[in-house]
């Protein structure tokens, strides 16, 4: 673990130059304009979207695009993704808490060794594992099922989550749990009741990491799932894009609906997102 140095900010320092602020505004525009345009366009009528009556802002609150989503399986995809994300995150975190604790307290693999394993696991080409995983999942009889996907996603989330939890557990002094042992607490109970609470930020960061991964994942979901009603959001949305190429209104409305939970989760947990990136540097 690194020693924390003092923050470079000082209260008496003046604000940065106008040039730096102008650049920041440019970055904000570059980030936000695409999203803004999606939201605005989702409320436009087909006429407004496709050229006859082109305008910057929608003429009114046209909800037809959103109504059209109901004709598709979009909400099923959505629900599937929520189920997969919830199950994956719960199970992966339980396993990662146990293993992270195990690595923090029982083994002597150094920081560098652990980091090497985690980085290596992150770097395996997803495509490389697609074929053997396809066969493995098929052998387990889990092809075309959400359970198969959950199993795969858990395993892929684990290395990083374990590493994160281990780092947080290392920061919890051993004395706290030894005190609990003296009070007659078993090691297992001490983990949940004494060691885990101070490491909760790590749990949150690991959860955010896992959820982002699950929402992002396309390759395996596309390969292992056949039935339309079992598709997850990324695969389902992609198939809708292929199906309704020219019906942008409907697609953008779906995009807005995908955006809402992402922003909600992100807004609630955003400080943990920076910790994920920070976790990569801590070493």
């Amino acid at each position: 673990m690194t020693t924390r140095t003092t923050r470079p900010r000082r209260r008496d320092r003046r604000y940065a130059s106008p040039g730096a602020h102008a650049f920041a505004i440019l970055l904000l525009l570059g980030t936000l304009l695409p999203f803004t345009w999606m939201v605005l366009s989702a409320f436009k009528t087909p006429m407004e979207l496709n050229g006859v009556d082109k305008r910057l802002l929608p003429g009114g609150f046209y909800l037809g695009n959103f109504e059209k989503i109901a004709d598709t399986n979009f909400f099923t995809y959505f629900l599937n993704s929520v189920i997969v994300a919830a199950a994956t995150t719960t199970i992966a975190l339980l396993l990662a808490i146990l293993a992270g604790y195990g690595f923090a307290r029982f083994t002597f693999i150094g920081n560098r060794g652990m980091l090497l394993i985690v980085v290596a696991a992150q770097m395996f080409p997803a495509v490389m594992l697609a074929i053997p995983l396809f066969i493995t999942v098929k052998t387990l009889g889990l092809l075309d099922s959400l359970t198969g996907l959950i199993l795969v996603y858990i395993s892929f989330a684990l290395p990083f989550c374990i590493w994160l939890m281990r780092n947080y557990f290392m920061a919890v002094p051993v004395e706290t749990e030894e005190a609990a042992f003296i009070d007659g607490c078993s090691r297992f109970r001490a983990l949940w009741q004494v060691v885990l609470p101070p490491a909760m930020p790590g749990v949150m960061a690991a959860a955010v990491f896992t959820i982002i991964q699950v929402w992002e994942e396309f390759l395996y979901a596309n390969t292992f799932i056949d039935t339309d009603a079992k598709r997850t959001l990324s695969v389902g949305l992609n198939s809708l894009i292929g199906e309704f190429t020219t019906d942008w209104g409907r697609l953008l409305a779906a995009g807005v609906l995908v955006m809402i939970p992402v922003l909600a989760i992100f807004g609630y947990l955003q400080r943990y997102v920076t910790q994920i990136a920070g976790g990569g540097v801590k070493g």
């Binding site: 695409p34 929402w215 990324s234 949305l237 779906a254 955006m259 992402v262 997102v273």
Partner: peptide
Amino acid sequence: VVPTVLVALI
């Protein structure tokens, strides 16, 4: 944090 499929759509 936005999934690539949404980036693609946009």
